[in-house]
């Protein structure tokens, strides 16, 4: 170091000499001060989630959808199963909107024709999403179908939670031979394709909401059980569990009172991934014709009905398709956001 950085003579003369006295004890800095404010687990996750715009937007959209669905139990525009054959196959008509396709007009052999006038629908009677081959209001049917999808998804997620958490917790917490046996069983079951189980179940029980829920509940819990077990194994050797043991808490109390709350992050994430797959499965089963049965609406049956006449009555396919895509996309985005928020390092 040839160039002196600062010569001793170069003192800052403005500093008064009185400053060069030892700092007295009363003015001493707090040595052990922790600078950053501490955030609780949920606050921290919430802060991260809020930064994810897509996830927040998805959450708002989902909440709106759920609100609308709950309200539609009492305030549906029409009875979703009410047939009104004279009003069959009407395109959508939304008041004050004058875009072909949404104003009651449909293209018939190359010309836009007002179908509402053709069948003398009163001026103040509008079908926002149009009607199907039996004159049923599509909006009401999409609302009813979405409700079924959400119901099935929530119920499937519920069973997934109950079975998956219990199995995983017991397996991980008990450990030893119990764990070994439970893991072997899991390994064997996981070789069975979900599709096969669901289809066999649906053949055995009458198709409908209940049987789909049971079928999905029976198959969906395996991943949850695995995740919960792995996490429990990690947690059970940690200090706070040891502390609880030394204090003489019962095994059950520790598992439920200490382990379970620490699993909440991964449980929420896993549940959020179960829901869209349950929605997909219901739609899938109904689409191929072994899920919901007519006349009940579900997004799958609506899509099935819609796709057959897609070229001529596109609205019958578009509305349910958009509905299912919106639900799936928002659930997936929210699930991704929650995963990143709760555990930034966690992978699939």
């Amino acid at each position: 170091m040839d160039e002196p950085i600062n010569e001793n003579k170069n003192l800052s003369p403005k500093i008064p000499s009185s400053y060069f006295t030892p700092l007295d004890d009363t003015h001493h800095f707090d040595n052990e001060r922790i600078a950053a404010p501490s955030l609780s687990f949920y606050q921290d996750a919430w802060r991260r989630l809020k930064k994810n715009k897509a996830a927040v937007a998805s959450m708002i959209i989902l909440l709106l959808i759920i609100l609308v669905e709950v309200l539609s139990i009492w305030y549906s525009p029409y009875d979703p199963n009410l047939q009104n054959v004279p009003h069959a196959n009407l395109p959508p008509r939304i008041p004050h909107v004058n875009i072909n396709g949404f104003n009651g007009k449909a293209k018939i052999s190359g010309v836009w024709v007002d179908k509402y006038e053709l069948v003398h629908v009163p001026k103040d009677l509008n079908y926002y999403f149009g009607t199907d081959a039996f004159g049923r209001d599509l909006l009401s049917r999409v609302l009813a179908g979405t409700r079924v999808s959400l119901l099935i998804a929530l119920a499937a997620a519920f069973f997934d939670l109950i079975i998956g958490i219990t199995y995983g917790l017991v397996s991980g917490w008990k450990g030893g031979s119990v764990d070994t046996i439970m893991q072997r069983i899991l390994e064997i079951i996981s070789g069975i394709p979900t599709l096969v189980v669901v289809i066999l179940m649906l053949l055995f029980i009458r198709p409908g909401v209940t049987s789909i829920i049971i079928a999905l509940g029976l198959t969906g819990w395996i991943t949850m059980a695995r995740v919960v077990r792995a996490e429990t194994l990690k947690l059970k050797n940690q200090e706070f569990v040891l502390a609880a043991r030394t204090l003489g808490e019962s095994s059950l109390n520790i598992a439920v009172g200490h382990i379970l709350p620490n699993l909440s992050g991964i449980i929420i994430i896993q549940t959020m991934f179960t829901i869209p797959s349950a929605i997909f499965f219901e739609a899938f089963l109904s689409f191929i014709g072994i899920g919901m049965r007519a006349p009940n609406a579900s997004l799958g049956t609506l899509l099935n009905e819609g796709y057959k006449t897609f070229r001529f009555l596109p609205h019958l396919m578009w509305f349910p398709a958009v509905a299912i895509c919106v639900i799936m996309i928002t659930f997936n985005l929210l699930a991704d956001g929650l995963r990143d928020a709760f555990d930034p390092k966690m992978k699939d």
Binding site: I5, N6, S12, Y19, F20, T21, P22, L23, F29, N31
Partner: peptide, 20 residues
């Protein structure tokens, strides 16, 4: 200064230069 048992009053206000 915060961790220095020999801290001076000046430490709280001015950054020390490199003394040779």
């Amino acid at each position: 200064a915060q961790r220095n048992q020999y801290a001076l009053n000046v430490d709280a206000y001015y950054e020390p230069p490199m003394f040779k």
